[in-house]
């Protein structure tokens, strides 16, 4: 017997490579979008900080904009710096 696979369609779900599952600000899963968006993934990306914390980009930007003096990570209170991985 010889088997030839002509085509194989599979199903997969995508996942962020991150050290956490939920965004610390909106408490939504990373694979979900922030409350202001309706599509996840490309439309609502994640950002990494130097402190290794990860948030929805929209969430952390909103947070940082609301801070008057210092730009701190809401989780560890270190100065927030984007980590361009």
């Amino acid at each position: 017997m010889k088997i030839k696979v002509k085509s194989w369609t599979s199903v997969a779900w995508w996942k962020w490579i991150a050290n956490d599952e939920n965004c610390g600000i909106c408490r939504m899963a990373f694979e979900n979008c922030c409350p202001d968006c309706s599509f996840a993934g490309d439309d609502c990306p994640l950002v990494w900080g130097h402190c290794s914390h990860v948030f929805h980009m929209h969430c952390i930007c909103k947070w940082l904009n609301s801070q008057l003096n210092q730009q701190l990570c809401p989780m560890c209170r270190q100065t927030w710096r984007f980590n361009d991985r």
């Binding site: 002509k6 194989w8 369609t9 599979s10 199903v11 997969a12 995508w14 694979e31 599509f39």
Partner: peptide, 11 residues
């Protein structure tokens, strides 16, 4: 074999 995938947003 030619492959393809359906990539879903699991949430």
């Amino acid at each position: 074999p030619s492959v393809s995938a359906l990539i879903v947003s699991s949430q």
